[in-house]
Amino acid sequence: PDFTLHWNGITIHFKGIDEEQFRHLRELLDRGVSLEELEELAKELIK
């Protein structure tokens, strides 16, 4: 499924991740993950 997340004025689209992965990403963003960390995470998910 696809998810869209609005965070700090940025709209991020996640394609092909499951709800569990999306929930994990939201928790990280709510905790204050940096954009660099988010990019690293995205690379991991894409593999």
Rank of each mutant, 00 (worst) to 15 (best):
residue 41 L to Y: 13
residue 7 W to E: 01
residue 36 E to D: 11
residue 14 F to H: 00
residue 43 K to I: 10
residue 39 E to Y: 14
residue 16 G to F: 10
residue 16 G to I: 06
residue 3 F to P: 01
residue 40 E to F: 09
residue 10 I to E: 05
residue 27 E to A: 15
residue 16 G to M: 05
residue 15 K to T: 12
residue 37 E to Q: 10
residue 17 I to Y: 02
residue 39 E to W: 15
residue 24 H to K: 12
residue 45 L to R: 02
residue 15 K to I: 12
residue 43 K to T: 08
residue 2 D to M: 14
residue 6 H to D: 06
residue 29 L to Q: 03
residue 13 H to S: 12
residue 8 N to W: 04
residue 15 K to Y: 15
residue 3 F to N: 02
residue 20 E to G: 12
residue 37 E to G: 04
residue 20 E to D: 10
residue 18 D to N: 15
residue 40 E to W: 09
residue 20 E to K: 14
residue 43 K to G: 07
residue 8 N to F: 06
residue 13 H to D: 06
residue 22 F to D: 00
residue 22 F to V: 03
residue 6 H to G: 03
residue 40 E to R: 12
residue 3 F to C: 05
residue 5 L to E: 00
residue 29 L to W: 11
residue 36 E to C: 05
residue 23 R to M: 10
residue 22 F to S: 01
residue 4 T to P: 01
residue 41 L to V: 11
residue 4 T to D: 02
residue 13 H to M: 12
residue 17 I to M: 05
residue 17 I to R: 01
residue 35 L to H: 04
residue 10 I to G: 03
residue 18 D to A: 07
residue 18 D to K: 11
residue 20 E to Q: 15
residue 32 G to F: 09
residue 9 G to N: 05
residue 5 L to Y: 04
residue 42 A to Y: 15
residue 24 H to T: 13
residue 31 R to M: 12
residue 20 E to M: 13
residue 21 Q to V: 13
residue 41 L to D: 01
residue 31 R to T: 09
residue 39 E to M: 15
residue 21 Q to W: 07
residue 31 R to V: 07
residue 26 R to S: 06
residue 19 E to T: 09
residue 22 F to E: 01
residue 8 N to R: 08
residue 20 E to S: 13
residue 12 I to C: 05
residue 23 R to I: 07
residue 36 E to T: 11
residue 14 F to W: 04
residue 9 G to L: 01
residue 29 L to T: 02
residue 17 I to C: 02
residue 33 V to I: 11
residue 25 L to W: 06
residue 6 H to C: 04
residue 40 E to T: 09
residue 34 S to W: 07
residue 31 R to L: 10
residue 24 H to Q: 13
residue 32 G to N: 06
residue 22 F to L: 05
residue 34 S to D: 06
residue 6 H to M: 12
residue 32 G to H: 05
residue 13 H to K: 09
residue 4 T to A: 06
residue 34 S to M: 05
residue 14 F to P: 00
residue 5 L to K: 00
residue 8 N to H: 08
residue 36 E to F: 13
residue 1 P to V: 15
residue 15 K to R: 09
residue 23 R to Q: 07
residue 16 G to W: 08
residue 25 L to P: 00
residue 31 R to S: 11
residue 7 W to Q: 04
residue 11 T to A: 07
residue 27 E to W: 15
residue 3 F to I: 03
residue 6 H to V: 15
residue 2 D to H: 13
residue 37 E to R: 12
residue 23 R to G: 04
residue 28 L to Q: 06
residue 2 D to V: 15
residue 38 L to C: 03
residue 27 E to Q: 14
residue 23 R to K: 11
residue 8 N to C: 05
residue 7 W to M: 07
residue 32 G to L: 09
residue 29 L to D: 00
residue 40 E to M: 11
residue 31 R to C: 04
residue 7 W to G: 01
residue 32 G to T: 05
residue 36 E to N: 08
residue 47 K to S: 14
residue 14 F to R: 00
residue 1 P to I: 15
residue 11 T to E: 08
residue 12 I to W: 05
residue 11 T to C: 10
residue 13 H to V: 15
residue 36 E to G: 09
residue 3 F to M: 04
residue 9 G to F: 02
residue 45 L to Q: 04
residue 33 V to Y: 14
residue 29 L to I: 08
residue 36 E to M: 10
residue 29 L to N: 02
residue 28 L to P: 00
residue 1 P to W: 15
residue 9 G to C: 04
residue 19 E to W: 12
residue 42 A to H: 08
residue 20 E to A: 15
residue 3 F to K: 02
residue 47 K to C: 13
residue 37 E to W: 09
residue 13 H to E: 10
residue 12 I to V: 11
residue 31 R to G: 08
residue 22 F to W: 12
residue 29 L to F: 15
residue 32 G to Y: 06
residue 47 K to N: 14
residue 47 K to Y: 06
residue 42 A to K: 03
residue 12 I to T: 01
residue 33 V to P: 05
residue 28 L to F: 08
residue 9 G to D: 03
residue 6 H to Q: 11
residue 33 V to L: 11
residue 8 N to T: 01
residue 36 E to P: 08
residue 21 Q to K: 09
residue 43 K to A: 12
residue 11 T to R: 06
residue 9 G to Q: 02
residue 17 I to K: 02
residue 38 L to A: 03
residue 26 R to M: 07
residue 34 S to Y: 04
residue 20 E to N: 13
residue 21 Q to Y: 04
residue 25 L to D: 00
residue 11 T to V: 10
residue 33 V to D: 02
residue 20 E to P: 03
residue 44 E to L: 12
residue 11 T to N: 03
residue 37 E to Y: 09
residue 16 G to V: 05
residue 17 I to P: 02
residue 5 L to Q: 00
residue 19 E to F: 13
residue 17 I to T: 03
residue 10 I to A: 06
residue 2 D to Y: 14
residue 10 I to L: 09
residue 18 D to Y: 04
residue 38 L to M: 05
residue 45 L to I: 11
residue 2 D to I: 15
residue 37 E to N: 05
residue 25 L to A: 01
residue 34 S to G: 09
residue 35 L to T: 04
residue 36 E to Y: 13
residue 41 L to H: 05
residue 33 V to K: 07
residue 1 P to C: 13
residue 42 A to D: 01
residue 30 D to N: 14
residue 19 E to P: 11
residue 8 N to L: 05
residue 1 P to G: 14
residue 24 H to C: 13
residue 21 Q to P: 02
residue 14 F to C: 02
residue 43 K to M: 09
residue 24 H to F: 15
residue 8 N to Q: 08
residue 45 L to V: 07
residue 44 E to F: 08
residue 33 V to A: 13
